[in-house]
Design a protein around this nucleic acid. Structure first.
Length: 592
RNA sequence: GGGGGCGUGGCGAAGUCGGUUUAUCGCGCCGGCCUGUCAAGCCGGAGGUCGCGGGUUCAAUCCCCGUCGCUCCCGCCA
């Protein structure tokens, strides 16, 4: 290799380099044979450079040129020369020049690849994942992986400057199942005992605060044994952050500064800070989601007052049982066909709505659907909701939560269908004032809606036991463009409040002691007030890259069924390994 | 656990609704021609049990049933 080592990359030569002797290393991206003249596009991470083998070249050179196929790895020695003006390629960064080859050395050959390394290659995803190393050669993947590197670099740069220490926490920890299922790692030396892979470094970062580390962060891998989605993998990465002696405003300011720094230094975007804050109740009321896409308006409104006075039994019935009637006014959508409306209804039903009522506002008044119940009040309704002729009104009547979320799903769909979304925009918002507890119908009791270490807001401290429903916690999400980007909270550091929360959610103290006694014990030795947040790195880079699945920004992702098609994991293991661990595989009982 | 979509030469797609021919097109592959292309061009060629199994039929890529794989969504994911 020594004599073939590159002196320049494939992305850097310009007109000013004309006359230089250079050596290039790279992959054969194209080989165009014009019967005498060969044009070889040589590709590496940095770009593409055109290599020319002139007709007058020695026979051994043209012979090698004839042999070159896609993805051969070659070393080319030659002289840089400026292209004649009419042959400059303005599409290429190196388009002003070409390298006249004096030697071409094949470093390795390649079989015909299963798909082309090309921006336009559109191989199906599992094939791309099977041959991920080929897929990753494409410039579009190289760009995304570089962006991910740039983001983590700028995160580290920013947090370092802000006085944070990056501290690693263990990947094999005690299983403390609470939310998602744990991945378990069997111990050989302690037969029958298991480590768990962390769902997040939550407990450890809190203990680091007790340890006096004040400001901690970590680019941490987190593992959850739950079904995957476009924005969810069994294994993902979060920017884990925890701070002592802070309130949520301090956390918000830090994260806003960090995002502004990252966006400005990676994709050259100035973010407006501070980010908008939106109470959970308002987010649901207005957008029908706790992670609203605020790049377009189309807000939900309350139709309760009109519904209550109507003869429409479906609406009045829902209201009488304490539910809500929400309306969405869709400008200009009165042309929607019954088929289109019924498609929208399917979306609403997916989220638990029993149906999607509708009517149209025409020049002649309300028309179609449920209009006969409201036609007499056309003027009032138009006035109240700012509706104009040509608009479509859509309704969901149900419990408040279902009415909001179902119509919110319709809103999200319409935002896409009607082209209301500017894909280049980033609309951040803090969602605050989440309820601390939620009612669990099954167990007929209260659950922690985030986790049990979240601090109740001070105003609710005295009424926590008597009326848990309205209690708001000091927890917050950061959302952007309909994606939940981060989640965090101010933690409980007072053992007494902690005890009260355990008791409200019916969590036995001995159980708490067994699962995370080590955390609770640490709190008995002077725990500082603390709080933190954990932005998801994959989702962040996904948004920045304009992608819709995090698989596009992970070098080696699993597919939606948790399989890595490249190494074919998970796999069966050698029986001897199982013997050592004392594990026996039990076949599932045959299905009925 | 539930629902939707997809599965056709190496790759991407058409054909399937409404049954019957050498299953079509682009890319790639192989061979040939061609001094300037840059998604090069032109000519010729090879390559497919239409995911798999079963059923209906004179006849199935197409219809029916089942199954597998991938994907999107609901549930789940503090």
């Amino acid at each position: 290799m020594e004599q073939h080592k590159r002196t320049v990359t494939c992305g850097e030569l310009r007109a000013a380099d004309a006359g230089r002797h250079v050596v290039l290393n790279g992959w054969v991206h194209r080989n165009r044979d014009h019967g005498g003249v060969h044009f070889i596009n040589l590709r590496d991470r940095y770009g593409i450079t055109q290599v020319v083998i002139d007709e007058g070249a020695p026979v051994e050179l043209t012979g090698i040129a004839d042999e070159l196929r896609f993805e051969f790895v070659v070393a080319v020695g030659g002289v840089v020369r400026a292209r004649p003006p009419e042959m400059v390629n303005p599409e290429m960064a190196t388009g002003e020049v070409e390298v006249a080859a004096q030697s071409v050395h094949i470093l390795t050959r390649s079989e015909t690849p299963p798909f082309m390394i090309d921006e336009r290659s559109d191989a199906r995803e599992d094939l791309r994942l099977t041959y991920r190393y080929l897929d990753l050669r494409s410039f579009s993947m190289q760009r995304k992986i570089k962006l991910r590197h740039d983001v983590t670099f700028r995160v580290r740069e920013y947090l370092h400057r802000e006085g944070f220490y990056e501290i690693e926490t263990p990947t094999m920890i005690r299983s403390t199942p609470e939310g998602a299922r744990d991945f378990l790692v069997p111990s050989r030396t302690h037969r029958g005992a298991f480590y768990a892979l962390p769902q997040s470094p939550q407990l450890y970062k809190q203990i680091l605060m007790v340890s006096g580390f004040d400001r901690y962060f970590q680019i941490a891998h987190c593992f959850r044994d739950e079904d995957a989605r476009g924005d969810r993998q069994p294994e993902h990465t979060q920017i884990d952050i925890e701070m002592s002696f802070v309130g949520k405003d301090d956390v918000f300011a830090l994260v806003e500064g960090m995002f502004a720094h990252v966006f400005s230094h990676t994709i050259d975007r100035k973010l407006e800070t501070p980010f908008v804050r939106l109470a959970y109740d308002d987010a649901l009321n207005r957008y029908g989601s706790d992670k609203p896409d605020m790049r377009f308006d189309l807000e939900l409104r309350d139709f309760g007052s009109f519904a209550a006075d109507s003869d429409f039994k479906v609406f009045t019935g829902v209201l009488e049982s304490g539910g809500a009637v929400k309306v969405l006014v869709v400008p200009g959508a009165a042309e929607y066909s019954r088929k289109q409306i019924s498609d929208l209804e399917e979306t609403a039903k997916t989220y638990g709505a029993k149906g999607l009522a509708w009517m149209k506002l025409t020049d002649a008044g309300l028309d179609g659907g449920v209009s006969k119940f409201f036609a007499s009040r056309t003027a009032e309704i138009s006035e109240a909701f700012g509706a104009s002729p040509g608009d479509l009104l859509l309704f969901v009547a149900d419990t408040w939560t279902t009415a909001c979320t179902a119509l919110g799903a319709v809103r999200a769909r319409l935002g896409r269908e009607l082209g209301l979304i500017d894909p280049a925009e980033f609309r951040f918002a803090w969602i605050v004032d989440f309820p601390l507890f939620e009612w669990n119908e099954e167990k007929q009791g209260w659950d922690a809606s985030h986790h049990m270490f979240t601090m109740p807001q001070e105003a609710y401290l005295s009424s926590m036991e008597s009326d848990p429903g309205p209690v708001k916690g000091d927890l917050y999400d950061l959302v952007c463009n309909g994606v939940e980007l981060a989640s965090g909270s101010i933690r409980v550091h007072d053992p007494e409040i902690q005890r009260r929360i355990f008791s409200i959610v019916g969590f036995p103290e001995e159980e708490a002691e067994r699962r995370f006694g080590f955390l609770l014990e640490s709190f008995r030795y002077g725990a500082p007030p603390h709080g933190g947040i954990a932005p998801g790195l994959d989702r962040l880079v996904m948004l920045m890259a304009g992608e819709s699945t995090i698989r596009e920004v992970i070098a080696f992702p699993k597919n939606t069924v948790g399989i890595c098609p490249m190494d074919d994991s998970p796999s069966a293991v050698d029986p001897a390994q199982l013997d050592e661990l004392g594990i026996r595989i039990v076949e599932p009982p045959p299905d009925e």
